[in-house]
Design a protein around this nucleic acid. Structure first.
Length: 115
DNA sequence: CTCATGACTAGCT
DNA sequence: TAGCTAGCCATGA
């Protein structure tokens, strides 16, 4: 137990946060890390998912901050994750999930009018 | 203890 | 828009 002392709770929080991701949605490693109480622990989140032995864990719903899949393109993990996401209705193209309203109608642009 | 690696991110060119 | 660099954090040699 004391191998990671301060990290035990973190691991538990990460797993809980990942399980809390709704089906058909995705979250970034940094986002999960923040929910777990470690804004700079994105890489540790990835490590935890890799070590997680829970088959029911929706690890495939965790992607990088820019929407791309963490696994290297062409690798088994990459294809597996893309396959699972598509099975949930998530649009995956060129190894990345559909961006949140990348192309919005002029109406939305007028309503938002940021910058 | 120091060095290298990685399912990461944000910033700069 | 795309590519590179530096920073961050835990694990293993």
């Amino acid at each position: 137990m004391a191998t990671t002392a301060t990290g035990g709770a973190f691991v538990d929080a990460v797993l809980a946060a990942v399980r809390a991701i709704p089906r058909g949605e995705v979250r970034s490693y940094a986002h999960i890390a923040r929910l777990a109480g470690r804004p700079r622990g994105a890489r540790q989140v990835a490590r935890i998912l890799a070590a997680a032995a829970d088959p029911a864990l929706p690890w495939h719903r965790v992607v990088r901050a820019d929407g791309r899949i963490g696994f290297a393109p062409g690798s088994a993990g990459h294809r597996e994750q893309a396959r699972r996401l598509r099975a949930e209705g998530v649009v995956v193209r060129a190894g990345r999930v559909a961006p949140p309203a990348a192309e919005a109608p002029a109406l939305d642009a007028l309503l938002w009018a940021p910058r």
